[in-house]
Structures are given as C-alpha cells and as structure tokens.
Design a protein around this nucleic acid. Structure first.
Lengths: 219, 219
DNA sequence: GTCAAGAATCTGTGATCACACCTGCGAATC
DNA sequence: GATTCGCAGGTGTGATCACAGATTCTTGAC
C-alpha cells in the first residue's frame, strides 16, 4: 500500500501532541493507565512515528513515564507527588496571575465570565469533563494574558501532570463547593485588586490540597 | 548495509538526550545556532531516529525551537527571555534550597566544597567550560538533596534554557567576582541558616541579572 | 487436576526509505 | 553586467521494516 499521504495542513506530530495534551489536561486519561504507540497510532489514524514523537515530548513534560521495559504509563498517583505538584502551582500561578492583572481588559473579563458560567453549568449537571475543561480554560485565560512565556510554559507542564490526578480526586469526592474562588478572582481582576487575586487563587489551589488528606492513593 | 546493531547498554535515545542536555547546560551550544538531525546522528554515530526523539524532548523543555519550516534552532537570546528565566529561577530555586537544607549531611557538604574548589580553579585559569560545569554541579548537588521531584524537574528545565545564555554572558563579561555567594551558601548550609541561604542564593541569581542590563542582545 | 514449558503475540526501539519543500548556486537571458 | 530562472542538495517529517524482549496463552506431561 502506498503511503497514502494527504495530511491536512501539516505537522502531524504537533496535532497528535496537542490532542494527547488536551486529554491529559482535561483528565481523560487515568493515572496508572498504560498507553501504546501502536494503539494510539491506530486510534488517531497515523503511523507510529508522530505518536512516538508526541509521547517523547509528553515524557519530557512529566506527563508519562517511559518504563524502558515494554510499558509506557501515566504516572500513578501518590500523596507526595500530588502535594509536590500543588505546592509548585502555589509558587508559580500567583506570580503569573499578578503579572496578568494589569493586562486584563474588558474583552478578557467577558471571556472569563463565560468560562466561569460554563463551569457552573457543568457543576449543575455533574459533567466532570466539562468542568475540567472549563477550569483549565478559566485559569489559562488569565495566565496567558501576561508576557512571560517561560513562566507560562512551566505552569502548563504542571497542569499536564496534574490533570489526571484532579480527575481522580473529583471523581472520588465530587465537585461541590469549588466555584466560589473563581467568582472572587473575577471580582479581584475587575477591581485590579492584587492582594485579593492572590488570596483567592491560593485558596482555589488549596481547595484541591484539602481533598487529598484522607484518601488512600495509588493508581 | 546491515543494521550493524551493537548498542552498548540500551536506550540510545536516552543517551543522546543526556549528551545533548549536558551540552546545553554547560553552554557548549550557542543561542541562535541551528541543529540538524542528520548532522547530530552522524556526529554521535546513531541513526536519525534517536536524535529526533531527543530533540522532541528538548523542544518540549524549551531548549530548542522547532521552526516547522526546515530549521530547528536553539532560541536566540533576548533581554525579555533572559529576565523571565532569571525571575523563574528566583522563584523556584530558593524553595528547593530551603527544602534541601535539613537534608545536607557531612558527605554532601564535602562534595559541595569540592565543587566550589573546582569552580575556583576554573575561574583562575579562565576555563569557562569547567566553570559552567562546576556551577551546574554545585547548584544541583543542593537541589537534588530534597525529595520534591517535580520541583527539581522544573528547575532542570530552566537551566536547560539558561545554559546557552549564561555562556554568552560570561564569554562577554568574564567570570570575575561571582564565587563569593557560593562560599556564603556553603556557610549557611553548614550552620543550617535558612535565611542566610536564601539571601546568598538570590544574590547569586541576581548577579547574573546585573550583567544583562547594558548589552545589546540578539544571536 | 495442576503446573510448567514453549510458542505466538505484542511491545518499544532503531534503521531505512520516501517525500515535500526550502535554500543556494549557477547559468542563461536581456 | 545585472537580474532571474531552474536545478541540485539538504532539511524535517512520516511510513515502514526489523529486532529484542516481555507477556500471555496454549499445550503438554506428570
């Protein structure tokens, strides 16, 4: 069979990487599950090559671990790792949010409000998928407004590792009482209130931390 | 020609990645220079495949940019990016150093002293290579003593992007008067003096920041 | 019926080939 | 002599093939 190349635009491996990245961030992939190059290639209708390239990148970003012996797994969840991730978020995200604060114009505020509404609807219907996606959009609408690309990249790395965990936690404990902080953040952004923004964001991150204490981890 | 496989141990692409990473961290690769898969493959005696995989990882870590049109370059240096990197370092590295502080035993202190001596010798002889390598070893001897792997990974990412820049700066301004902070850090570690450690480390990072102001960047 | 040994299969990894496209160098034309 | 057109070389990218090793299922003997 000839290669049958048609592609659409270009850069298959970039598309694959983005698709997988989306799955990670929105928690569509469970911690501890195993991925295979051939399986993903079949599923996405491409050859192994772009899948391998995408998986290398994800490995570099810590989203998957490449156990050289015949298995490539998304890292299992442990309390230590979860805590480490949250504390790193707590270090980096307030910095990004504060840098973004002066850049928030009316248009972006409108988008933020829309994202928060969509989160609210997801909470009502119990749609965890939509909640995860909305939460991601909400936070990165803020962070991407600031010009420090390296800082943004570090935060993306964290969310990539964090997504699968978050999904497990929310699946286990439900998604109640988590949206208040977003409202506070929007208010602080509107008032250009740096202290309030930092406070609300840290509280938002710590909400996740609180969930963790009791549950036995693994897988 | 038959594949002629001999490998050594295993995992070619891991070796390639590590080799390239070392070159980046120690500044053997200049900002703005271009790399090629075929060239590196030839130079390292492997095929393109492991090189491509390693380069994907490095791209994910921000060490190289993959301009889809025919060129893969190490990002050119700009004042904004340099400043962004340094501020991220300032955010993350003190956190790691303080977490490492209680873990520093006599053996590690001895290694730190040795690394600092080696830096001193490099400064005397003006050996920039040795200085870069020693500086890297010194800092990561500290950071790797603490258990937060994610935090460590983030810092490694920063150094990967930082290495080529640092080399340019030191090549341009010389490496004088930079070692004092390391002595102070060793002293603070010995005394388990958290505040002193933080102060010396931040000063060490800001030393780099000071160098940047006047010079016109690019390339 | 139980357990162990071997075959079949499926995995990641590396090499090689094929292709589209950009870059430069050279020659031909005005 | 200057400008433009075309061809050759080199690039990243994707597909395919080949191989080593691990896992799993089957099959055989006790």
């Amino acid at each position: 069979m000839p290669p049958e190349r048609k592609v659409s635009g270009s850069l298959l491996h970039a598309n694959v990487h983005q698709e997988l990245r989306r799955r990670f961030v929105t928690g569509k992939i469970m911690p501890g599950s195993t991925l295979s190059t051939r399986g993903l290639a079949l599923e996405l209708g491409v050859s192994q090559t772009p899948v391998r390239e995408a998986l290398s990148r994800l490995a570099a970003e810590g989203a998957v671990q490449i156990r050289s012996k015949r298995k490539i797994v998304v890292p299992p969840m442990t309390a230590d790792r979860f805590c480490d991730l949250l504390r790193c978020r707590e270090l980096l995200e307030p910095e990004a949010a504060l840098a973004a604060l002066p850049m928030i114009d009316r248009a972006r505020l409108k988008k933020l409000k829309a994202a928060d509404d969509s989160i609210g609807r997801a909470l009502k219907t119990g749609d965890v998928n939509a909640y995860m996606e909305g939460n991601f959009n909400f936070h990165f609408l803020i962070y991407s407004a600031q010009p420090r690309r390296t800082l943004l990249q570090l935060i993306e790395t964290l969310w990539l590792q964090f997504g699968p965990f978050m999904r497990v936690v929310y699946g286990r404990f439900g998604t109640a009482n988590l949206t208040d902080q977003h409202e506070l953040m929007i208010g602080a952004l509107r008032r250009q209130d740096a202290a309030g923004l930092r406070r609300a964001l840290i509280a938002d991150i710590r909400d996740g931390m609180g969930l963790i204490g009791a549950s036995g981890f693994e897988a």
